[in-house]
Design a protein around this nucleic acid. Structure first.
Length: 422
RNA sequence: GGGUCUGUGCCCGAGUGGCCAAAGGGAGCGGACUGUAAAUCCGCCGGCUUCGCCUACGUAGGUUCAAAUCCUACCGGGCCCA
């Protein structure tokens, strides 16, 4: 659960009475993603335990881009994009935290509020003066970008370089912590393990400026087995929390398909399932891995946290229908229900029986990127209509329709689109 | 500003006049095997009206029968010097 913390004993002592904690979220996209969930649940746990929690939307820092864990310079966001992203993220924060709690309501702050008006000179004097460049370049993320790495596999001529802008990111984050400490009484900052350097810089700043102590806490970063981050831009699918960007069904499926070795960690980090239940689930899973009970638990819990129990139930029902075996015998109402869960395309019935209509249909359904791609898939046995494999010669006709209008197209094992003819 | 190196397909990276839609690896995608897993194996992996054609090797020109490969200018990146 925890990766690292400042003086743990002292922190534990402090947390016996109500404390105030913050976690920052940068609005780099219009929706939060799986990687942000750990932070959200982290805050929620603290809130449940009676502490004050502050979620910080990085309206200012989001404009800069955190170099941590990034090998490339980021694109800067403009004001409009940023505002749009913030608008998408705020409701998601609300979903996880109780902002109306009578005793310790969560707070949502935007660091833009105290950053945007600060004159450069003042910032340099108030913040810059307390931080040495030596400290800053000692950060791994910075070192890597400056080619000062000890890693012999890094060739100097391939190093990306780091702009002063990104280099300054940590100052802003440190300043945030300081500001929150002064004005909101925040004593603890938590974040992913990649945030460690940024957090400690803030603690130092607080100590130097106010002679007060503050705490830092990090959780192990959610990573996939190959080491890449969950839900981050660099490669792989991003698991979005917003239903517009990822339907609850696909969201559910994404968790159902996680690597076995990830199960325990994900259950602990991303759900409120108790430790003993998690242990139980892990045991059950290892006894009968093919039943995949653990995955189902994880997927259900996470989906209902993000999308609500109703959506989670629907995702389960859809999954059962799709992976339960034959689809042809399903009744009309079940198919309609499915159509609401999986991606759909509406196609004109006039295309039925037209030579070559399947290729076009696959493109329309977004199951193929080009005609060549579609043909290739057909040739490789990758497409099936309802329950039977299609061939390059296949033509979609009335015989392929269920209840006169549905046709379930599968690409490979997992990708499914419901075509509705009318 | 000067010097030097560099810019290739999703990524890394070979290729230094024709045999290049471009080696190799990774990622990705299909198939087999499975548990909607991992590992493994097989195939695919720019587009199309697909035995052929078109578009592509930073951008724009040029040399040549022929250029990713040579020349020029420009743009972008790294390092060093100022």
């Amino acid at each position: 659960m925890l990766h690292d913390s400042t003086d743990r004993a002292e922190l534990a002592e402090r947390l016996k009475t109500q404390a105030s904690i913050y976690v920052g979220f940068d609005p780099t996209a219009g929706s939060l993603h799986a990687g942000n969930m750990v932070g959200l649940l982290f805050l929620r746990r603290f809130q449940n335990a009676g502490h004050k929690v502050v979620s910080l939307a990085g309206g200012a820092t989001g404009m800069i881009g955190d170099p941590s864990g990034k090998s490339d310079e980021r694109n800067l966001l403009d004001d409009d994009g940023l505002a749009k992203n913030l608008a998408g993220i705020v409701p998601q924060l609300r979903q996880f935290l109780d902002f109306d709690h009578s005793d310790n309501p969560a707070k949502l702050l935007d660091n833009r509020a105290w950053t945007v008006g600060v004159p450069v000179l003042q910032f340099l004097r108030d913040v810059g003066k307390h931080v040495t460049v030596n400290q800053m370049i000692a950060k791994d993320s910075v070192k890597a970008r400056m080619g000062r790495t000890d890693d012999p596999t890094q060739r100097v001529d391939q190093v990306q370089g780091i702009s002063f802008t990104e280099f300054s990111y940590m100052l802003l984050q440190a300043h945030d912590f300081y500001w929150l400490h002064e004005n909101e009484g925040v004593e603890l900052q938590a974040g992913g393990s990649d945030q460690w350097g940024n957090i400690t810089l803030g603690i130092d700043l607080i100590r130097r400026k106010s002679q007060k102590s503050a705490f830092g806490l990090t959780w192990p970063l959610l990573t996939k087995p190959d080491g890449s981050k969950y839900g981050k831009t660099a490669g792989g699918d991003t698991i979005w929390l917003s239903p517009e960007q990822m339907s609850p069904y696909r969201f559910y499926q994404a968790w159902l398909q996680v690597d076995d070795s990830e199960l325990e960690k994900l259950l602990l980090q991303l759900t409120f399932v108790s430790v003993s239940e998690v242990n139980q689930a892990v045991v059950t899973h290892s006894e009968a891995p093919h039943a995949r009970s653990g995955h189902k638990l994880l997927a259900y819990e996470v989906t209902s946290l993000v999308h609500g129990a109703e959506a989670a139930d629907a995702a389960v029902a859809a999954s059962d229908a799709l992976f339960g075996g034959s689809v042809a015998h399903l009744d009309e109402s079940t198919l309609s229900m499915l159509a609401a869960e999986v991606p759909t395309v509406v196609v004109s019935a006039s295309t039925l029986e037209v030579e070559g209509n399947l290729v076009d249909l696959l493109i329309q359904a977004d199951l193929a990127t080009s005609k060549g791609d579609a043909r290739k898939l057909l040739k490789q046995n990758g497409i099936s209509l309802n329950d039977s494999k299609a061939t390059p010669e296949s033509v979609v006709g009335p015989q392929d329709l269920l209840h006169k209008r549905f046709c379930l197209i599968r690409r490979g094992k997992k990708k499914v689109v419901m075509a509705i003819f009318d």
